[in-house]
């Protein structure tokens, strides 16, 4: 780990100010950034810890929307997001207890790891990512692996999830990291079904629109019969070739639909 300064502001405004410093970087729960620092793969001059900002930790449901502060940990989402059970279940199965007690939803969405769970939930729910400066629709937020619409110094303060009628997330774990080798989040709303896939594509999280169309007409696993994704564009690595990932997207989508009944 290289040396750095650390600041621990207690308000979003102070955090934004601190992030204006030369080579400053925001630190959420640190579950990605700290290992990178330890491996000397990152060298920020200033780390701005967001973990003491209470105003971005709240979780509340009102008018069919679940609002989660960007600084809420996975463990608190698992415990307090009862209004959206599929989301609470997703949070309860991220990483291990240590990860869940430190990692935050804002950190996960800002990092946009192509195998992370939360991006699938946000995209499938048509969530709104709220920052210190604006509101971004999930459809406009994810721009490819590790890339988002966030500007430098912008902080995810809240994520607003419209609560669906039915939803489920099914994750097929990569054997080593236990990240999603393929994860599929299915959410049924009055105006249609949304299906978001994480872990699979070279472009990061994406919506499987064919499946959404089929499921919007008939929300059952059989509606997906005959549908499949091409292997092209899927990730290939030690743990899965592209064709296997494409196959798993189909299997996990069917399972998610069944689980959502």
């Amino acid at each position: 780990m290289y040396s750095f300064e650390i600041e621990s502001p207690v308000s979003v405004a102070d955090a934004v100010a601190a992030l204006g410093k030369e080579e400053a970087q925001a630190l959420g729960g640190g579950q990605t950034l700290i290992p990178s620092l330890k491996a000397r793969l990152a060298a920020p001059a200033v780390l701005v810890s967001l973990s003491k900002i209470d105003e971005i930790k709240g979780i509340s449901a009102a008018d069919g929307v679940l609002s989660i502060g960007g600084g809420a940990t996975h463990a608190s989402v698992a415990a307090e997001a009862g209004a959206y059970p599929a989301l609470a279940a997703l949070a309860a199965n991220i990483g291990d207890p240590a990860v869940r007690n430190r990692g935050t939803i804002g950190g996960s969405l800002a990092n946009n790891d192509p195998a992370a769970c939360y991006p699938a939930a946000a995209l499938a729910s048509g969530a709104t990512i709220v920052t210190n400066t604006r509101e971004i629709a999930a459809d406009d937020y994810f721009e490819g692996m590790f890339t988002t619409a966030l500007e430098d110094g912008e902080i995810v303060t809240e994520v607003r999830f419209p609560i669906p009628e039915k939803a489920a997330y099914v994750k097929f774990e990569q054997p080593a990291s236990r990240f999603a080798l393929v994860g599929v989040f299915v959410a049924k709303y009055p105006d249609g079904v949304r299906v978001a896939v994480t872990g699979a594509s070279e472009e990061g999280v994406f919506r499987w629109e064919e499946a959404e169309a089929a499921l919007s007409g008939n929300f059952s696993a059989s509606a997906l019969d005959g549908l499949s994704l091409p292997a092209e564009g899927m990730m290939g690595d030690l743990h899965a070739a592209p064709d296997y990932r494409a196959h798993l997207v189909g299997v996990m989508t069917r399972r998610a639909v069944t689980a959502a009944q």
Binding site: P175, A176, S177, F179, D237, L238, H239
Partner: peptide, 24 residues
């Protein structure tokens, strides 16, 4: 039998060089 595999690529780079890829 089920999980562990130490893998090099054809250039001798160790692909399974951390617990992210070496499954215990």
């Amino acid at each position: 039998a089920m999980l562990e595999n130490c893998v090099y690529d054809e250039n001798g780079q160790l692909l399974s060089a951390s617990y992210m890829d070496y499954a215990m």
